[in-house]
Amino acid sequence: MSTAGREAPAWLLRPEPGLCSCGCVGRRRRGSFLDKTLRGTTVALARVLFDDDEAERDLPLQRVDPAVKIVAAALLLLAAALVHHVVVLVALSLALLGLAAGCGVPAGRLARRVWFTVPAFTAVVVVPATFSFVTPGEVVLPLGTWFGHPVGLTRQGLTAALLLVARVGACLTVALSLTMTTRWDRLLGGARRLGVPRAIVMVASMAFRYLCTLLETVTDLFTARKARTVNPSDATEGRRFVAASAGTVFGASHHLATEVHEAMIARGYTGEPRTLARARVRRVDALWFLGALAAATLALGVDRVVLG
């Protein structure tokens, strides 16, 4: 074999030993943190990017103007933040789940997204608050004594923790109901109509658009490295790789940004984004807004007046 007039070295012409001829196998190793993180991020992002099925359906909630939906969601979030009774927050979450289910969003998936995420992220914050040395009160689950005083989980601590979890859950249900029934470009269009500066909307829109492209670059870099790695790398080496590839990704994103800007200028862009979207508030929008206002008022009324 020769290339460009040069003979290939002898080692290149010899086959390398592959699998052991006796058929024995080696010790299995678990994937690295890097592998898992990248795979997890890719799957999560792909889910967000490609899960437009519900948002594209022609159902009442999907038909509501995105600007109206954002205002309605803000009202419900405000109500959830002000309510002090777990039962009201749970009722609000269930009502939204039912509404979303009626509008084509699989209630099970929405509930899983909320109730798998909330305990995991809020537990770190709320667990210490349930102990008697953080929230003093009536100990309902004793864990021992400290200078003669019972130490454990208190009723007051558990109530506060439950309220926080229920509140975060209700807020997340509101936010996910909004994002799962509204395509992100319409959502950004709605934000624009509510007065969010054009530049911010444009940057957010393009960041979302190119997130996928850049993640693809990172995944390609990692895959190319993995394809040439025999021994799984340890965590330190993985971190070194991430640091080194950050430069490459930065270079790639800079090149892409330059090209995108040129492509915009080539079609007459002078700094003022223009879109086809028109503001149209219809009956369904007014109804949705009034419904959200009524729900928020009802939640606060029951919380403050009925339950005290």
Binding site: M206, E259, A263, M264, R267, G268, L276
Partner: peptide
């Protein structure tokens, strides 16, 4: 800009709007 159009090699760089409809409308609107 209206008389000279440029189709880039990297279509990813040229297709930046949220939807195809918005993308195609970008030039005429601008």
């Amino acid at each position: 800009r209206g008389r000279v159009g440029f189709v880039f090699q990297n279509a990813d760089a040229q297709v930046f709007s949220p939807t195809v409809r918005e993308e195609v409308a970008f030039g005429p609107l601008n």
